[in-house]
Protein backbone atom coordinates (compact mmCIF):
# COMPACT_ATOMS: atom_id res chain seq x y z
CA UNK A 1 0.00 0.00 0.00
CA UNK A 2 1.45 3.39 -1.01
CA UNK A 3 1.93 5.75 1.96
CA UNK A 4 -0.61 8.29 0.69
CA UNK A 5 -3.15 5.69 -0.45
CA UNK A 6 -6.58 6.25 1.02
CA UNK A 7 -9.04 4.19 -0.98
CA UNK A 8 -8.19 1.20 -3.13
CA UNK A 9 -10.70 -0.29 -5.56
CA UNK A 10 -9.95 -3.73 -6.96
CA UNK A 11 -11.96 -5.07 -9.89
CA UNK A 12 -15.06 -3.29 -8.61
CA UNK A 13 -18.24 -3.86 -10.60
CA UNK A 14 -21.66 -2.41 -9.81
CA UNK A 15 -24.69 -3.71 -11.69
CA UNK A 16 -28.27 -2.60 -11.28
CA UNK A 17 -30.59 -4.91 -13.14
CA UNK A 18 -29.04 -5.24 -16.57
CA UNK A 19 -27.18 -1.92 -16.39
CA UNK A 20 -23.47 -2.02 -15.57
CA UNK A 21 -22.75 1.20 -13.65
CA UNK A 22 -19.10 0.41 -12.89
CA UNK A 23 -17.17 -2.18 -14.85
CA UNK A 24 -14.19 -3.85 -13.16
CA UNK A 25 -12.73 -0.61 -11.85
CA UNK A 26 -9.28 -0.83 -10.28
CA UNK A 27 -7.76 2.40 -8.96
CA UNK A 28 -6.15 4.08 -5.96
CA UNK A 29 -7.29 7.40 -4.49
CA UNK A 30 -4.82 9.51 -2.52
CA UNK A 31 -5.15 11.03 0.93
CA UNK A 32 -4.82 14.77 1.64
CA UNK A 33 -5.66 15.98 -1.86
CA UNK A 34 -8.69 16.95 -3.90
CA UNK A 35 -9.44 14.28 -6.49
CA UNK A 36 -11.97 15.07 -9.21
CA UNK A 37 -13.97 12.22 -10.74
CA UNK A 38 -14.67 13.44 -14.25
CA UNK A 39 -16.70 12.15 -17.16
CA UNK A 40 -20.02 12.57 -18.93
CA UNK A 41 -23.40 11.81 -17.33
CA UNK A 42 -23.82 8.10 -16.70
CA UNK A 43 -20.06 7.50 -16.56
CA UNK A 44 -20.34 6.12 -13.01
CA UNK A 45 -19.00 9.10 -11.01
CA UNK A 46 -21.83 9.19 -8.46
CA UNK A 47 -21.88 5.40 -8.14
CA UNK A 48 -18.15 5.42 -7.36
CA UNK A 49 -18.63 8.12 -4.72
CA UNK A 50 -21.50 6.23 -3.12
CA UNK A 51 -19.37 3.08 -2.95
CA UNK A 52 -16.88 4.92 -0.77
CA UNK A 53 -19.34 5.49 2.09
CA UNK A 54 -21.29 2.30 1.38
CA UNK A 55 -24.49 3.90 0.16
CA UNK A 56 -23.80 1.53 -2.72
CA UNK A 57 -22.35 -1.98 -2.51
CA UNK A 58 -20.14 -3.56 -5.19
CA UNK A 59 -21.69 -6.45 -7.10
CA UNK A 60 -18.14 -7.82 -7.43
CA UNK A 61 -14.68 -6.70 -6.30
CA UNK A 62 -13.52 -4.95 -3.17
CA UNK A 63 -13.12 -1.41 -1.83
CA UNK A 64 -10.52 -0.79 0.91
CA UNK A 65 -9.88 2.21 3.13
CA UNK A 66 -6.34 2.42 4.54
CA UNK A 67 -5.88 -1.16 3.39
CA UNK A 68 -8.94 -2.58 5.23
CA UNK A 69 -11.97 -3.81 3.30
CA UNK A 70 -14.91 -1.45 3.81
CA UNK A 71 -17.32 -4.36 4.16
CA UNK A 72 -15.46 -5.58 7.28
CA UNK A 73 -15.96 -2.46 9.37
CA UNK A 74 -18.92 -0.78 11.07
CA UNK A 75 -20.82 1.05 8.35
CA UNK A 76 -22.07 3.83 10.66
CA UNK A 77 -18.53 4.57 11.87
CA UNK A 78 -17.37 4.57 8.24
CA UNK A 79 -19.97 7.17 7.27
CA UNK A 80 -18.79 9.42 10.07
CA UNK A 81 -15.26 9.18 8.68
CA UNK A 82 -16.35 9.55 5.05
CA UNK A 83 -18.98 12.28 4.70
CA UNK A 84 -21.06 12.87 1.57
CA UNK A 85 -22.68 16.03 0.30
CA UNK A 86 -25.04 15.70 -2.65
CA UNK A 87 -25.79 17.74 -5.72
CA UNK A 88 -28.81 19.59 -4.38
CA UNK A 89 -28.47 21.20 -0.97
CA UNK A 90 -30.84 19.15 1.19
CA UNK A 91 -31.60 20.84 4.49
CA UNK A 92 -33.13 18.64 7.15
CA UNK A 93 -34.26 21.05 9.88
CA UNK A 94 -35.76 24.53 10.27
CA UNK A 95 -32.90 26.32 12.06
CA UNK A 96 -29.21 26.63 11.24
CA UNK A 97 -27.88 25.38 14.63
CA UNK A 98 -30.23 22.35 14.48
CA UNK A 99 -28.91 21.61 11.02
CA UNK A 100 -25.36 21.44 12.29
CA UNK A 101 -26.45 19.12 15.09
CA UNK A 102 -28.21 16.47 12.96
CA UNK A 103 -25.15 14.24 12.98
CA UNK A 104 -23.70 15.59 16.20
CA UNK A 105 -26.34 16.50 18.78
CA UNK A 106 -23.78 17.61 21.42
CA UNK A 107 -22.21 20.32 19.22
CA UNK A 108 -21.45 23.41 21.32
CA UNK A 109 -22.23 26.92 20.07
CA UNK A 110 -18.55 27.81 19.79
CA UNK A 111 -17.95 24.76 17.61
CA UNK A 112 -20.94 25.68 15.47
CA UNK A 113 -19.42 29.15 14.88
CA UNK A 114 -16.07 27.60 13.92
CA UNK A 115 -17.79 25.28 11.44
CA UNK A 116 -19.61 28.18 9.79
CA UNK A 117 -16.33 30.10 9.52
CA UNK A 118 -14.68 27.05 7.96
CA UNK A 119 -17.19 27.09 5.13
CA UNK A 120 -17.11 30.86 4.75
CA UNK A 121 -20.46 31.63 6.39
CA UNK A 122 -20.86 34.39 9.00
CA UNK A 123 -21.38 33.30 12.62
CA UNK A 124 -24.48 35.53 12.69
CA UNK A 125 -26.16 32.89 10.59
CA UNK A 126 -26.65 30.82 13.74
CA UNK A 127 -29.80 32.81 14.44
CA UNK A 128 -31.25 32.22 10.98
CA UNK A 129 -33.89 29.84 9.74
CA UNK A 130 -32.83 27.45 6.99
CA UNK A 131 -35.83 28.33 4.80
CA UNK A 132 -34.46 31.77 3.84
CA UNK A 133 -30.97 30.67 2.77
CA UNK A 134 -29.74 31.08 -0.79
CA UNK A 135 -28.64 28.00 -2.75
CA UNK A 136 -24.96 28.76 -2.13
CA UNK A 137 -25.49 29.36 1.58
CA UNK A 138 -27.53 26.16 1.86
CA UNK A 139 -24.84 24.11 0.11
CA UNK A 140 -22.11 25.51 2.38
CA UNK A 141 -24.32 24.76 5.38
CA UNK A 142 -24.55 21.17 4.10
CA UNK A 143 -20.74 21.12 3.98
CA UNK A 144 -20.57 22.44 7.55
CA UNK A 145 -23.13 19.83 8.67
CA UNK A 146 -20.96 17.08 7.17
CA UNK A 147 -17.81 18.57 8.78
CA UNK A 148 -19.52 18.68 12.19
CA UNK A 149 -19.19 14.91 12.43
CA UNK A 150 -15.40 15.20 12.03
CA UNK A 151 -14.78 13.25 8.81
CA UNK A 152 -11.33 12.60 7.34
CA UNK A 153 -12.76 12.46 3.82
CA UNK A 154 -15.50 14.49 2.19
CA UNK A 155 -17.27 13.16 -0.90
CA UNK A 156 -18.92 15.88 -2.98
CA UNK A 157 -21.34 14.88 -5.72
CA UNK A 158 -21.55 17.73 -8.26
CA UNK A 159 -21.70 20.21 -5.36
CA UNK A 160 -22.01 23.33 -7.50
CA UNK A 161 -24.14 22.16 -10.42
CA UNK A 162 -27.32 23.58 -8.87
CA UNK A 163 -25.71 26.93 -8.00
CA UNK A 164 -25.16 30.26 -9.76
CA UNK A 165 -21.59 31.26 -10.69
CA UNK A 166 -20.93 33.38 -7.59
CA UNK A 167 -22.22 30.71 -5.19
CA UNK A 168 -20.25 28.02 -7.05
CA UNK A 169 -17.09 30.08 -6.66
CA UNK A 170 -17.67 30.43 -2.92
CA UNK A 171 -18.13 26.65 -2.58
CA UNK A 172 -14.97 26.01 -4.60
CA UNK A 173 -12.97 28.38 -2.38
CA UNK A 174 -14.33 26.56 0.67
CA UNK A 175 -13.25 23.22 -0.78
CA UNK A 176 -9.73 24.51 -1.47
CA UNK A 177 -9.46 25.83 2.09
CA UNK A 178 -10.58 22.50 3.55
CA UNK A 179 -8.04 20.58 1.46
CA UNK A 180 -5.30 23.02 2.50
CA UNK A 181 -6.28 22.31 6.11
CA UNK A 182 -5.65 18.60 5.57
CA UNK A 183 -9.04 17.21 4.57
CA UNK A 184 -9.27 14.76 1.68
CA UNK A 185 -11.92 15.72 -0.86
CA UNK A 186 -13.22 13.50 -3.64
CA UNK A 187 -15.44 15.42 -5.99
CA UNK A 188 -17.64 14.19 -8.83
CA UNK A 189 -17.93 16.83 -11.52
CA UNK A 190 -18.53 17.15 -15.20
CA UNK A 191 -17.22 20.70 -15.12
CA UNK A 192 -13.71 20.72 -16.63
CA UNK A 193 -12.99 24.34 -15.68
CA UNK A 194 -13.90 23.59 -12.09
CA UNK A 195 -11.63 20.53 -11.98
CA UNK A 196 -8.79 22.68 -13.31
CA UNK A 197 -9.38 25.22 -10.56
CA UNK A 198 -9.63 22.92 -7.56
CA UNK A 199 -8.45 19.35 -8.28
CA UNK A 200 -4.97 18.01 -7.54
CA UNK A 201 -5.71 14.65 -9.11
CA UNK A 202 -8.21 13.56 -11.71
CA UNK A 203 -9.83 10.21 -12.47
CA UNK A 204 -11.70 10.18 -15.76
CA UNK A 205 -14.50 7.64 -16.17
CA UNK A 206 -16.33 6.67 -19.30
CA UNK A 207 -19.15 4.11 -19.41
CA UNK A 208 -18.20 2.79 -15.99
CA UNK A 209 -14.48 2.36 -16.69
CA UNK A 210 -11.49 4.55 -15.78
CA UNK A 211 -9.87 5.92 -18.91
CA UNK A 212 -7.32 8.29 -17.36
CA UNK A 213 -5.95 8.88 -13.89
CA UNK A 214 -3.17 11.13 -12.59
CA UNK A 215 -2.13 14.61 -11.54
CA UNK A 216 -4.55 17.24 -12.82
CA UNK A 217 -1.78 18.95 -14.82
CA UNK A 218 -1.06 15.75 -16.76
CA UNK A 219 -4.60 14.75 -17.75
CA UNK A 220 -5.49 15.43 -21.36
CA UNK A 221 -9.21 15.37 -20.54
CA UNK A 222 -8.79 18.71 -18.77
CA UNK A 223 -7.13 20.20 -21.85
CA UNK A 224 -9.83 19.06 -24.26
CA UNK A 225 -11.99 22.14 -24.00
CA UNK A 226 -9.32 24.71 -23.23
Amino acid sequence: MAPDELFALDQVTVRRGRAVLLDEVTCRLSAGVCTALMGPSGAGKSTLLRLLNRLEEPTAGQVRLHGRPLADGDVLALRRRVGLVGQQPVLLTDHVPDELRVGRPDLAEGQARTLLEQVGLPAAMLTRQTAGLSGGEAQRLCLARALAVGPEVLLLDEPTSALDAASAKAVEQTVRRLVAAGLTVILASHNIAQARRIADEVLVLRAGRPVAHGAAADIDYLKEES
Partner: peptide
Protein backbone atom coordinates in the same frame (compact mmCIF):
# COMPACT_ATOMS: atom_id res chain seq x y z
CA UNK B 1 -31.98 12.59 -0.89
CA UNK B 2 -32.89 13.71 2.64
CA UNK B 3 -32.84 10.16 4.02
CA UNK B 4 -29.46 9.52 2.42
CA UNK B 5 -28.16 12.85 3.74
CA UNK B 6 -28.98 11.62 7.25
CA UNK B 7 -27.46 8.19 6.59
CA UNK B 8 -24.33 9.91 5.28
CA UNK B 9 -23.93 11.61 8.65
CA UNK B 10 -23.63 8.17 10.25
CA UNK B 11 -27.23 7.97 11.48
Amino acid sequence: PAIEARLSLGL
